[in-house]
Design a protein around this nucleic acid. Structure first.
Lengths: 102, 102
DNA sequence: ACTATACTTCTATTATTCTAGAAATATAGT
DNA sequence: ACTATATTTCTAGAATAATAGAAGTATAGT
């Protein structure tokens, strides 16, 4: 993945509220959860939650599908994996690495 | 690692300039590199660089050791590992996981 | 058409971050 | 003491982000 895209994803996860939202979705599993469920679980005002969800969608970390009035937020595990791989791939290309030995 | 500390580290890495600094240090290896070398390599004004380095230090992603007039910036691989583990540990505690299968 | 539910978009306020020049500090050599 | 090098801290302007109430939109049931 590209440096700038990685930075964007990291920045979005670098906010406690958004990280909590993403974490919640990831722990819930691949079916995701309705916005309202996230709202109740984390106790965030609707407009604030919507704003943060839009940002997470903006960098591909989640997506939404509608089921009648309910919007499900689906965590994009692949996006998280790409990010993790990016962080790990940076490691010590010019040197031996004490990280890989872990 | 704690949710809030993880968010802080993610936020610091979520800035293209800081991510470039950290990436540079990580690729250079465990000896790290002098501030001036980073400055030349990435072409960042001194004061701006200093500011970003201070923030990376603030969340434990790098540390500095002085060798006479030269300050070496040392990437903290362990901090990065903690962060990566945090991101992976969040995965699907309530469900099967399509990430683990990767 | 009317009402309820589920959410988003608009709006504005407050707070934080980014950037970089200028001034200051730390160390070393002469 | 003086000068050079290496880097930080001070300062301030411009940009971006966080928060949440109020108003709007989408879907569904009556």
């Amino acid at each position: 993945m590209e440096h700038e895209d990685a930075a964007k994803r990291l920045a979005e996860l670098g906010n406690v509220t958004r990280l909590a939202i993403f974490r919640y979705l990831v722990t819930v599993g691949p079916e995701g959860a309705p916005v309202g469920e996230v709202q109740k679980a984390l106790n965030i005002p609707g407009s604030t939650l919507s704003h943060h969800i839009a940002r997470l969608i903006g960098v591909g970390l989640i997506r939404q599908i509608r089921d009648s009035r309910t919007l499900y937020c689906i965590p994009q595990y692949e996006a998280l994996n790409e990010l993790i791989e990016f962080l790990m791939s940076e490691c010590c290309t010019q040197s031996r690495c004490n990280s890989a030995t872990k």
